[in-house]
Amino acid sequence: MTARAKALVSIAIAASLSFSGCQAVKQGAADIIASTGKVSREDAQSLVRTAEVVRSTFAEITEEEEYYIGRATAALILSKYMPYRNEALNSYVNVMGTILAYNSDRPETYGGYHFLVLDTDEVNAMAAPGGFIFVTKGLVRRCGDEETLAAILAHEIGHVAERHGLQSIKKSRLLDAFKVIGSEASRQFNSEELAKVTGIFEGVLGDVVETLVERGYDRKFEYEADKLALSFAVRTGYSPGGLAEFLVGMEEHKPSGTAAGWFKTHPSPADRLVRVKTETAVLGAAPAKLDVRTARFAEAAKNLR
Protein backbone atom coordinates (compact mmCIF):
# COMPACT_ATOMS: atom_id res chain seq x y z
CA MET A 1 0.00 0.00 0.00
CA THR A 2 1.36 3.46 -0.81
CA ALA A 3 1.92 6.04 1.92
CA ARG A 4 -0.92 8.08 0.46
CA ALA A 5 -3.32 5.14 0.64
CA LYS A 6 -2.26 4.52 4.23
CA ALA A 7 -2.91 8.13 5.13
CA LEU A 8 -6.33 7.85 3.53
CA VAL A 9 -7.05 4.73 5.55
CA SER A 10 -5.99 6.51 8.73
CA ILE A 11 -8.29 9.42 8.07
CA ALA A 12 -11.16 7.09 7.22
CA ILE A 13 -10.71 5.13 10.42
CA ALA A 14 -10.41 8.26 12.53
CA ALA A 15 -13.56 9.59 10.92
CA SER A 16 -15.46 6.40 11.50
CA LEU A 17 -14.52 6.73 15.16
CA SER A 18 -16.63 9.77 15.57
CA PHE A 19 -19.54 7.40 15.13
CA SER A 20 -18.31 5.23 17.96
CA GLY A 21 -18.13 6.02 21.64
CA CYS A 22 -16.40 2.81 22.62
CA GLN A 23 -12.95 3.10 24.21
CA ALA A 24 -11.84 -0.36 22.98
CA VAL A 25 -12.67 0.58 19.42
CA LYS A 26 -10.71 3.80 19.79
CA GLN A 27 -7.63 1.97 21.11
CA GLY A 28 -7.98 -0.66 18.39
CA ALA A 29 -8.15 2.03 15.76
CA ALA A 30 -5.07 3.79 17.13
CA ASP A 31 -3.24 0.44 16.95
CA ILE A 32 -4.29 -0.10 13.35
CA ILE A 33 -3.32 3.42 12.31
CA ALA A 34 0.05 3.07 14.07
CA SER A 35 0.60 -0.36 12.52
CA THR A 36 0.66 1.16 9.04
CA GLY A 37 4.18 2.18 10.08
CA LYS A 38 3.92 5.69 8.68
CA VAL A 39 2.39 7.27 11.75
CA SER A 40 3.88 7.15 15.25
CA ARG A 41 1.78 5.71 18.10
CA GLU A 42 1.48 9.18 19.69
CA ASP A 43 0.31 10.71 16.43
CA ALA A 44 -2.12 7.85 15.92
CA GLN A 45 -3.65 8.41 19.32
CA SER A 46 -3.85 12.13 18.73
CA LEU A 47 -5.57 11.47 15.41
CA VAL A 48 -8.15 9.36 17.21
CA ARG A 49 -8.59 12.03 19.88
CA THR A 50 -9.25 14.65 17.17
CA ALA A 51 -12.15 12.60 15.91
CA GLU A 52 -13.52 12.18 19.41
CA VAL A 53 -16.23 14.34 20.81
CA VAL A 54 -14.92 17.16 22.96
CA ARG A 55 -17.35 19.83 24.12
CA SER A 56 -16.39 23.16 25.59
CA THR A 57 -18.78 25.99 24.62
CA PHE A 58 -22.46 26.89 24.63
CA ALA A 59 -22.59 26.12 20.90
CA GLU A 60 -22.08 22.48 21.79
CA ILE A 61 -25.08 22.24 24.06
CA THR A 62 -27.28 19.77 22.20
CA GLU A 63 -30.81 20.51 21.06
CA GLU A 64 -32.15 18.07 23.63
CA GLU A 65 -30.15 19.65 26.46
CA GLU A 66 -31.30 23.09 25.36
CA TYR A 67 -34.88 21.80 25.57
CA TYR A 68 -34.42 20.58 29.15
CA ILE A 69 -32.73 23.86 30.16
CA GLY A 70 -35.64 25.71 28.49
CA ARG A 71 -38.30 23.61 30.22
CA ALA A 72 -36.83 24.22 33.67
CA THR A 73 -36.31 27.94 32.93
CA ALA A 74 -39.97 28.14 31.88
CA ALA A 75 -40.98 26.26 35.05
CA LEU A 76 -39.14 28.86 37.15
CA ILE A 77 -40.74 31.77 35.24
CA LEU A 78 -44.11 30.09 35.85
CA SER A 79 -43.36 29.91 39.57
CA LYS A 80 -43.24 33.73 39.55
CA TYR A 81 -46.08 34.46 37.09
CA MET A 82 -49.45 32.80 36.55
CA PRO A 83 -50.60 31.86 33.06
CA TYR A 84 -53.38 34.17 31.85
CA ARG A 85 -56.52 32.05 31.60
CA ASN A 86 -57.78 33.26 28.22
CA GLU A 87 -57.88 30.42 25.73
CA ALA A 88 -58.83 32.56 22.74
CA LEU A 89 -55.91 34.96 23.29
CA ASN A 90 -53.43 32.14 23.99
CA SER A 91 -54.52 30.31 20.86
CA TYR A 92 -54.21 33.52 18.79
CA VAL A 93 -50.69 34.13 20.12
CA ASN A 94 -49.67 30.50 19.49
CA VAL A 95 -50.86 30.43 15.88
CA MET A 96 -49.21 33.77 15.11
CA GLY A 97 -45.98 32.76 16.89
CA THR A 98 -45.85 29.42 15.08
CA ILE A 99 -46.14 31.12 11.68
CA LEU A 100 -43.44 33.64 12.62
CA ALA A 101 -41.20 30.76 13.78
CA TYR A 102 -41.76 29.00 10.44
CA ASN A 103 -40.38 32.13 8.76
CA SER A 104 -37.40 32.47 11.10
CA ASP A 105 -33.85 31.21 10.67
CA ARG A 106 -34.58 28.37 13.08
CA PRO A 107 -38.09 27.01 12.53
CA GLU A 108 -37.38 23.66 14.16
CA THR A 109 -36.24 23.24 17.76
CA TYR A 110 -36.21 19.97 19.74
CA GLY A 111 -39.55 20.55 21.47
CA GLY A 112 -40.93 23.21 19.11
CA TYR A 113 -42.04 26.79 19.86
CA HIS A 114 -44.73 27.40 22.47
CA PHE A 115 -46.24 30.72 23.52
CA LEU A 116 -48.04 31.77 26.68
CA VAL A 117 -49.60 35.01 27.94
CA LEU A 118 -48.74 35.73 31.59
CA ASP A 119 -51.31 37.18 33.97
CA THR A 120 -49.55 40.37 35.03
CA ASP A 121 -49.90 44.06 34.26
CA GLU A 122 -46.12 44.31 34.03
CA VAL A 123 -45.04 44.97 30.43
CA ASN A 124 -42.58 42.24 29.50
CA ALA A 125 -41.66 39.42 27.10
CA MET A 126 -39.20 36.59 27.70
CA ALA A 127 -37.88 33.62 25.76
CA ALA A 128 -36.55 30.53 27.52
CA PRO A 129 -34.06 28.43 25.51
CA GLY A 130 -35.50 26.04 22.95
CA GLY A 131 -38.64 28.09 22.25
CA PHE A 132 -40.73 28.70 25.40
CA ILE A 133 -41.91 32.25 24.79
CA PHE A 134 -43.83 34.44 27.24
CA VAL A 135 -45.59 37.75 26.77
CA THR A 136 -47.42 39.50 29.58
CA LYS A 137 -51.02 40.68 29.55
CA GLY A 138 -49.63 44.19 30.18
CA LEU A 139 -47.57 43.96 27.00
CA VAL A 140 -50.47 42.75 24.84
CA ARG A 141 -52.50 45.68 26.19
CA ARG A 142 -49.71 48.04 25.09
CA CYS A 143 -49.81 46.68 21.49
CA GLY A 144 -52.18 48.52 19.16
CA ASP A 145 -52.34 45.95 16.41
CA GLU A 146 -51.21 42.54 15.16
CA GLU A 147 -48.07 43.97 13.51
CA THR A 148 -46.83 45.19 16.91
CA LEU A 149 -47.43 41.91 18.73
CA ALA A 150 -45.89 40.05 15.78
CA ALA A 151 -42.75 42.20 16.13
CA ILE A 152 -42.47 41.33 19.84
CA LEU A 153 -42.92 37.60 19.20
CA ALA A 154 -40.44 37.74 16.30
CA HIS A 155 -37.91 39.51 18.58
CA GLU A 156 -38.24 36.69 21.15
CA ILE A 157 -37.96 34.04 18.40
CA GLY A 158 -34.75 35.84 17.39
CA HIS A 159 -33.32 35.29 20.91
CA VAL A 160 -34.18 31.57 20.63
CA ALA A 161 -32.85 31.22 17.09
CA GLU A 162 -29.50 32.74 18.11
CA ARG A 163 -29.41 30.82 21.41
CA HIS A 164 -28.87 34.04 23.38
CA GLY A 165 -30.20 32.49 26.60
CA LEU A 166 -27.61 29.73 26.50
CA GLN A 167 -24.87 32.32 26.10
CA SER A 168 -25.60 33.63 29.57
CA ILE A 169 -24.39 30.35 31.09
CA LYS A 170 -21.01 30.73 32.79
CA LYS A 171 -18.31 28.98 30.82
CA SER A 172 -16.79 27.32 33.90
CA ARG A 173 -20.18 25.74 34.63
CA LEU A 174 -20.40 24.31 31.15
CA LEU A 175 -16.90 22.87 31.37
CA ASP A 176 -17.80 21.22 34.69
CA ALA A 177 -20.96 19.78 33.14
CA PHE A 178 -19.23 18.48 30.05
CA LYS A 179 -16.56 16.87 32.22
CA VAL A 180 -19.11 14.88 34.21
CA ILE A 181 -21.33 14.16 31.24
CA GLY A 182 -18.39 12.79 29.25
CA SER A 183 -18.74 11.27 25.83
CA GLU A 184 -19.71 7.67 26.50
CA ALA A 185 -22.89 6.52 24.81
CA SER A 186 -24.84 5.55 27.93
CA ARG A 187 -27.86 7.75 28.68
CA GLN A 188 -28.04 6.94 32.39
CA PHE A 189 -26.03 8.57 35.16
CA ASN A 190 -25.04 6.72 38.31
CA SER A 191 -26.28 8.40 41.51
CA GLU A 192 -23.04 10.26 42.21
CA GLU A 193 -22.86 11.65 38.65
CA LEU A 194 -26.56 12.50 38.76
CA ALA A 195 -26.16 14.55 41.95
CA LYS A 196 -23.22 16.42 40.41
CA VAL A 197 -24.90 17.08 37.07
CA THR A 198 -28.14 18.18 38.76
CA GLY A 199 -26.13 20.62 40.90
CA ILE A 200 -24.56 22.07 37.75
CA PHE A 201 -27.99 22.14 36.07
CA GLU A 202 -29.30 24.29 38.94
CA GLY A 203 -26.40 26.69 38.42
CA VAL A 204 -27.11 26.80 34.68
CA LEU A 205 -30.76 27.69 35.39
CA GLY A 206 -29.63 30.39 37.82
CA ASP A 207 -27.50 32.00 35.08
CA VAL A 208 -30.30 31.86 32.49
CA VAL A 209 -33.17 32.99 34.74
CA GLU A 210 -31.12 35.85 36.20
CA THR A 211 -30.42 37.09 32.68
CA LEU A 212 -34.03 36.75 31.47
CA VAL A 213 -35.75 38.16 34.53
CA GLU A 214 -33.27 40.39 36.35
CA ARG A 215 -30.22 41.47 34.43
CA GLY A 216 -31.25 41.35 30.77
CA TYR A 217 -29.20 40.23 27.81
CA ASP A 218 -26.14 41.95 26.58
CA ARG A 219 -27.20 44.99 24.51
CA LYS A 220 -25.75 43.53 21.34
CA PHE A 221 -28.14 40.57 21.66
CA GLU A 222 -31.12 42.92 21.96
CA TYR A 223 -30.07 44.84 18.86
CA GLU A 224 -29.53 41.57 17.03
CA ALA A 225 -32.98 40.30 18.06
CA ASP A 226 -34.52 43.57 16.81
CA LYS A 227 -32.85 43.12 13.45
CA LEU A 228 -34.05 39.50 13.26
CA ALA A 229 -37.56 40.56 14.35
CA LEU A 230 -37.82 42.90 11.37
CA SER A 231 -36.60 40.23 8.99
CA PHE A 232 -38.82 37.41 10.35
CA ALA A 233 -41.90 39.67 10.46
CA VAL A 234 -41.43 40.87 6.88
CA ARG A 235 -40.77 37.32 5.66
CA THR A 236 -44.05 36.30 7.29
CA GLY A 237 -45.91 39.09 5.50
CA TYR A 238 -46.14 41.72 8.26
CA SER A 239 -45.38 45.39 7.91
CA PRO A 240 -41.99 46.12 9.57
CA GLY A 241 -43.47 49.16 11.34
CA GLY A 242 -44.73 47.18 14.37
CA LEU A 243 -41.44 47.18 16.26
CA ALA A 244 -40.88 50.93 15.89
CA GLU A 245 -44.46 51.58 16.96
CA PHE A 246 -43.97 49.51 20.12
CA LEU A 247 -40.67 51.23 20.96
CA VAL A 248 -42.19 54.69 20.49
CA GLY A 249 -44.98 53.70 22.91
CA MET A 250 -42.48 52.38 25.45
CA GLU A 251 -40.36 55.55 25.22
CA GLU A 252 -43.48 57.59 26.00
CA HIS A 253 -44.22 55.46 29.06
CA LYS A 254 -40.66 55.40 30.36
CA PRO A 255 -40.67 55.47 34.16
CA SER A 256 -38.96 58.46 35.72
CA GLY A 257 -37.56 56.57 38.72
CA THR A 258 -35.53 53.34 38.93
CA ALA A 259 -35.98 51.10 35.93
CA ALA A 260 -37.82 47.85 36.62
CA GLY A 261 -39.08 44.90 34.56
CA TRP A 262 -38.79 45.45 30.82
CA PHE A 263 -37.01 48.80 31.24
CA LYS A 264 -34.38 47.19 33.43
CA THR A 265 -33.74 44.21 31.18
CA HIS A 266 -33.73 46.07 27.83
CA PRO A 267 -31.64 48.91 26.37
CA SER A 268 -33.47 52.26 26.17
CA PRO A 269 -36.30 52.28 23.60
CA ALA A 270 -34.84 55.45 22.04
CA ASP A 271 -31.49 53.71 21.37
CA ARG A 272 -33.24 50.75 19.81
CA LEU A 273 -35.52 52.97 17.76
CA VAL A 274 -32.59 54.66 16.02
CA ARG A 275 -31.22 51.28 14.94
CA VAL A 276 -34.61 49.86 14.02
CA LYS A 277 -35.31 52.85 11.74
CA THR A 278 -31.99 52.35 9.95
CA GLU A 279 -32.64 48.61 9.56
CA THR A 280 -36.16 49.24 8.29
CA ALA A 281 -34.88 51.65 5.66
CA VAL A 282 -32.60 49.02 4.14
CA LEU A 283 -35.41 46.45 3.96
CA GLY A 284 -36.86 48.19 0.89
CA ALA A 285 -40.32 47.21 -0.30
CA ALA A 286 -42.21 45.52 2.54
CA PRO A 287 -45.80 44.40 3.18
CA ALA A 288 -48.27 46.99 4.39
CA LYS A 289 -50.42 46.93 7.54
CA LEU A 290 -53.85 45.36 6.92
CA ASP A 291 -57.18 46.23 8.55
CA VAL A 292 -58.24 42.58 8.68
CA ARG A 293 -55.26 41.82 10.95
CA THR A 294 -55.81 44.85 13.16
CA ALA A 295 -59.46 43.83 13.55
CA ARG A 296 -58.68 40.27 14.61
CA PHE A 297 -56.05 41.53 17.06
CA ALA A 298 -58.68 43.79 18.62
CA GLU A 299 -61.03 40.80 18.84
CA ALA A 300 -58.39 38.55 20.49
CA ALA A 301 -57.39 41.28 22.97
CA LYS A 302 -60.89 42.60 23.69
CA ASN A 303 -61.29 41.27 27.24
CA LEU A 304 -57.94 42.52 28.48
CA ARG A 305 -58.92 45.82 29.95
Binding site: G21, I61, T62, E64, E65, I69, S186, R187, F189, F201
Partner: peptide, 8 residues
Protein backbone atom coordinates in the same frame (compact mmCIF):
# COMPACT_ATOMS: atom_id res chain seq x y z
CA UNK B 1 -24.57 10.86 24.86
CA UNK B 2 -26.22 11.57 28.13
CA UNK B 3 -26.49 15.19 29.21
CA UNK B 4 -29.12 17.46 30.73
CA UNK B 5 -31.94 15.01 30.17
CA UNK B 6 -35.15 13.63 31.67
CA UNK B 7 -33.20 11.93 34.47
CA UNK B 8 -31.61 15.27 35.48
Amino acid sequence: AKGFNKQV
